[in-house]
Amino acid sequence: MAGPLLVAVAILATPAMAEDAAKAEDVTKIIPDPVTVVMPKLDFTETEADRADYDKYFYFHRADTGFEEALADLRECDGMAKGLQSGIQYQQPPYPYAGTMAGAAGGLLGSLMVEAIAGSAEKRKLRRVNMRRCMGYKGYARYGLQKDLWQEFHFEEGFSGEEESKRQAMLAQQAKVASGTKPVTGELGI
């Protein structure tokens, strides 16, 4: 059993990951001025194919919600969706040192088991489901979007994650949309 764990620790302990994590620490706390956040394009001519993909490609909006509040909600749900809150550093250490064998065994085993059971596509799906539940419970309505437009300010994460600064920039755009003008298209439900 120690073999796979050691391999996992070695994989997680790459310097590149450590550097990314070090950068991530700062960007996750920054609250950008909403004026500087580019409002993404949301209008498009809907087709049947678009409607068929609304379970994957969507955005959130809630009335009477400010940018900062929406960003906090999105960040919280993003953490929940991915399992990124406090414990995740134990499961996916931001630098080599968090992977101490005694403490990390359980978390690593859990992560490896989940990854072994669920493929990358399943992980992406799980993230979508978790975001929808978390934001839905917070009272945000969901609206469909065309895939190309969606990709401009959203990310999907399977086995590989997006760089944290890009994730945060996209979350800020999502917050701008979530706290902006109420969409005229129909709500999709959780």
Partner: peptide, 12 residues
């Protein structure tokens, strides 16, 4: 709320 420590589906 509690952290999603195991990276699983979330609900309440």
């Amino acid at each position: 709320m509690r952290s999603n420590w195991f990276g699983i589906a979330v609900d309440r």
